[in-house]
Design a binder for these strands. Structure first.
Length: 897
DNA sequence: GAGTTTGAAACT
DNA sequence: CAGTTTCAAACTC
């Protein structure tokens, strides 16, 4: 922070200025082309997808694992660690590097080296680190992706952790790093190196987009391996930015070397012996990333944000400086990244995972719009919550690098604020050690720190949500340990951007947070469940109204203001809502077809949908948000959304006089089911139409999703007799991982119909709230993401959904999941008060129990029809992301390993 | 920026 | 379970 470093930084900047020409040189381009690294760049884009998985973390419930929970909340930590580690690694790398170099590293070095020697050193070190990394089973996942993608980051990290002593790191920071950074930055500007970094992060950590954003930011801020800097960091190292970075390093180094505590401090200090531990730390970070998504929510948001940050060099620098000062001074909280947002994403979505939970779904969802706004990316808008995060990343991926850069730059320029949050978070990351110390210290002091930081934060971001889309809170009395706190509710640690006072929702108080969470969950198992499910699907194929689980209780706002949860989430009100005079633009409560009408009336629903559609269009027209409009359109097209509501609100259904058309499907009448089925089929078409619209705006991502959807739809159409099979689907959905389904669908479009059916079903399931709802709970409980678990069941997917699913679930699925999977059990659990919690799955199951699969199938069908993107839940991350990503990024899957 | 409004969350 | 209080965000001025 202090002056001394600044001069150094400046010196660094000069080198960087030199390097750029080199990068530009034809030779450099040629090398880059030759080098295997380039693929990495592609992966980089992919990272966002990897990040998608992260959102689920947010939802992870304490029940499953404390670890999960911790990770769940760790969003903040993650950034911290990353920043610290990065700095450390960077320093260490600079020192140690010379020794061994992997072929990859060599390549990178060649690229890097052309530019600068310092980089070479780092790369070398990184290579060593990679080896270590590989050695470590824990990190294998990360390593795989990292290696393939970007050894540098890992290497740097590893080296720093294992080898470099803190002191050296500082020295390096003071000396080489800064120099190196500038150079790296330049390289990054070239694009290759940055990409590598991104992949590392994403792949290694399987980070949410949001997380990635943070992570990248962290790098960026730290200036740690300049190469680590984002691809996006096209920005030439602006002097101010460098200065900031330098300051950050100092902070980190100080923490590390001197008082350092936190993970970073430990890692650095213990680095040699604890290389593995450090790796564990890394691994943990990965988890954190996943968690962070949210904001990543966004969560997803994060990815966009990251890019933005990267892209924005100049503006960001100023912001960074601002952020840094407060952060260093207070070093209040470690941040949870985001989502995205976290979105989740970030997001997720992401937090997802997200928010994971990453960002907690709610936060993600909410954040998503914000992020979108910040990014101005329509695509992102379409995706809510975790998806948002994903979408942002996805968008970047899909877009040509140039385009991306432009978009990023535009975004960055448009909203420097968005960047700032990340920066802030990053700074926090550096501080975590301090916080850990603080834990021992008095809470009061801690509170004070938080408050002071909060004030600063507040200035930065007035809005509840960060530009990233990450949740921000301004809690004063709740200590951020109640659902009043958006961060806490989202399952994310409060970040520096938060203006909360006396915040306990920080890694330092992880235990307290977990306990509180458990208490709250004990009260209401769904308390941390995403309020809205499956944004992706909704966006693409289903009406916006689809996913609000709980529904609102608006009396005066008429569901036309953000007071309304539904409106805030860009979701239409459903029968589950208890609102008065609902005028929700995204779908009115009254739009639902009365249950009593019974047998459905697709026509009715359709008419209603159309009418509402027109009205909505008008309403939407008024709206500024493009996203909202898009959602609206989709909503209109898809009456299906109500079905989701039904699942969610199944408990409520009896109460509500009117149900959405989907509700008609209720198991009670087969006819209704059929009609619902028809609708579902229809809706897909509509959705496809909407999807087409979206595609126009959104581009490839939407196309991907749309394509999948189409396939599914086709399959469905093929299986007109679907009823029985699809009935089974709901159960299967729980079991089957989206990724599998997706893989099947995407991998073998030519595969037999049966496969497709299964795949479609599976996809739908994930997408469907009903499925997800029960699962969502589980997911919430386990940030770890059911995905892996589900993956185990994949083999069974092809099997009878009806028969096998339950068995599979019971056998393979964790007990928790089993419970949730258990149709009868789960539902009521959700809402003690009945008000908001809706156990969609339960309904399905319950209904299914009574009515058998037919109803399920109807719902499922709908769900299936909706291309399933990974729901907000963690699972959704990988899978959903996969779907979207597939076209764009195959790399992600490899990374996800 | 302060104050008001609103509705969710928490409490009784 | 209903009503009330508390809380923080959204909104208004």
């Amino acid at each position: 922070m202090d002056s001394p470093e600044i001069p150094k930084i400046k010196s660094n900047t000069s080198p960087s200025s030199d390097s750029p020409p080199v990068q530009e040189s034809p030779v450099f381009s040629y090398i880059s082309n030759l080098s295997p690294i380039q693929p990495v760049k592609a992966s980089h884009a992919v990272q966002g997808f990897t990040g998608l998985s992260s959102p689920p973390l947010v939802f992870t419930s304490p029940r499953i694992n404390t670890l999960r929970e911790t990770s769940f909340l760790k969003r903040p930590q993650y950034p911290r660690l990353s920043s610290v580690e990065k700095t450390k690694s960077h320093d260490e790398a600079s020192k140690f590097v010379d020794g061994t170099v992997d072929s990859r590293k060599h390549i990178t070095q060649l690229q890097m080296g052309l530019i600068t020697d310092t980089q070479d050193c780092e790369t070398n070190s990184s290579s060593e680190g990679v080896d270590e990394y590989l050695a470590d089973p824990m990190e294998m996942d990360c390593t795989n992706s990292c290696q393939s993608v970007n050894p540098c980051l890992k290497e740097s990290i590893n080296a720093s952790e294992s080898e470099a002593p803190p002191e050296k790191a500082k020295e390096d920071l003071d000396g080489k790093q800064f120099d190196a950074k500038p150079v790296k930055n330049e390289e990054h500007s070239d694009g290759e190196l940055p990409s590598s970094e991104c992949p590392k992060v994403g792949s290694g950590l399987s980070i949410d987009n949001a997380f990635n954003g943070e992570y990248h930011q962290g790098f960026h801020n730290q200036g740690i391996g300049g190469r680590h800097q984002d691809d996006c960091d096209h920005n030439p190292p602006s002097p101010p930015g460098r200065l900031q970075i330098g300051q950050v390093y100092e902070d980190c180094t100080e923490k590390v070397g001197g008082t350092s505590r936190g993970m970073i401090g430990n890692m650095i200090l213990h680095s040699p012996n604890k290389a593995k531990n450090d790796q564990g730390g890394m691994h943990r970070r990965c988890l954190q990333f996943e968690e962070a998504p949210p904001c990543a929510t966004g969560k997803g948001d994060s990815s966009s944000v990251e890019k933005v940050n990267n892209s924005e060099p100049p503006a960001s620098t100023a912001e960074l400086e601002i952020v840094q000062v407060p952060y260093a001074a207070t070093s209040k909280r470690q941040m949870g990244a985001s989502l995205p947002p976290r979105y989740g994403g970030s997001s997720p979505l992401t937090v997802p995972k997200p928010s994971g939970i990453g960002l907690h779904l709610n936060s993600i969802v909410n954040a998503a719009p914000v992020v979108r706004g910040a990014t101005t990316i329509k695509l992102a808008d379409h995706y809510i919550g975790v998806q948002v995060m994903k979408s942002s990343s996805v968008v970047n991926h899909h877009l040509p690098e140039n385009v991306r850069d432009e978009t990023e730059n535009s975004i960055a320029t448009s909203s420097s604020i968005t960047r700032s949050p990340h920066n802030v978070e990053f700074e926090r990351h550096g501080s975590p050690p301090e916080k850990s110390k603080l834990d021992s210290q008095n809470v009061d002091s801690y509170m004070e720190l938080n408050q002071s930081s909060s004030q600063k934060k507040r200035k930065k971001t007035p809005s509840s949500k960060d530009s990233d889309g990450c949740k921000r809170c301004n809690c004063k009395k709740s200590k951020c340990l109640k659902l009043y706190c958006d961060c806490f509710a989202a399952g994310v640690y409060c970040a520096e951007t938060c203006a909360c006072q006396g915040c306990f929702n920080i890694p330092d108080y992880e235990d307290t947070v977990l306990e509180t969470r458990q208490q709250i969950e004990a009260r209401n198992p769904l308390a941390f469940a995403p309020k809205i499910v499956q944004l992706e699907e909704e966006i693409q194929f289903t009406p916006a109204s689809a996913r609000h689980k709980r529904g609102c209780n608006c009396k005066k706002s008429m569901c036309l203001k953000k007071y309304c949860e539904c409106y805030q989430a860009n979701v239409g009100c459903s029968s589950g809502c208890r609102c008065d005079g609902c005028k929700n633009v995204y779908g009115r409560k009254g739009d639902f077809v009365p249950i009593e009408h019974g047998v459905i009336k697709d026509t009715i629903s359709d008419k209603a949908g159309k009418e509402t559609f027109d009205e909505k269009l008008e309403m939407v027209a008024t709206k500024k948000d493009i996203l909202s409009t898009d959602l609206y359109d989709s909503h209109n097209h898809t009456p299906l959304t109500p079905s989701f509501h039904c699942s969610d609100h199944a408990n409520n259904i009896p109460k509500s006089p009117c149900l959405p058309a989907s509700y008609l499907r209720s198991p009670e009448s087969d006819l209704t089911i059929i009609s619902s089925y028809e609708k579902s089929t229809r809706s897909p078409l509509r959705n496809s139409e909407t999807g087409g619209i979206l595609l126009e705006t959104s581009k490839e991502l939407l196309d991907m999703g749309y394509y999948h959807w189409r396939e599914d739809y086709d399959h469905i159409g093929v299986a007109d007799t679907f009823s029985t099979r699809y009935d089974a689907a709901p159960t299967t959905c729980h079991i089957i991982p989206l990724s599998d389904l997706y893989s099947k669908a995407s991998a073998s479009s030519t595969s037999s119909r049966s496969d497709w059916k299964n795949a479609s079903q599976a996809q739908l399931c994930p997408g469907s709230q009903g499925l997800s709802s029960s699962s969502s709970l589980h997911w919430h409980s386990s940030p770890v993401t059911p995905m892996a678990r589900l993956g185990g069941t994949k083999s069974s997917q092809g099997l009878d959904f009806d028969n096998g699913l339950y068995d599979v679930l019971h056998e393979e699925t964790p007990e928790i999941l089993k419970d949730s999977s258990n149709p009868i059990r789960s539902v009521k659990v959700s809402s003690p008060n009945k008000k908001r919690v809706s156990p969609p799955h339960n309904h399905n199951h319950e209904l299914g129990a009574s009515s058998s699969g037919s109803l399920r199938s109807g719902r499922k069908f709908i769900l299936k029809a909706v291309p399933s993107f990974p729901p907000l839940t963690p699972c959704s991350n990988s899978e959903g992301s996969n779907i979207i990503q597939n076209t764009s990024n195959l790399h992600d899957k490899g990374r996800k390993k």
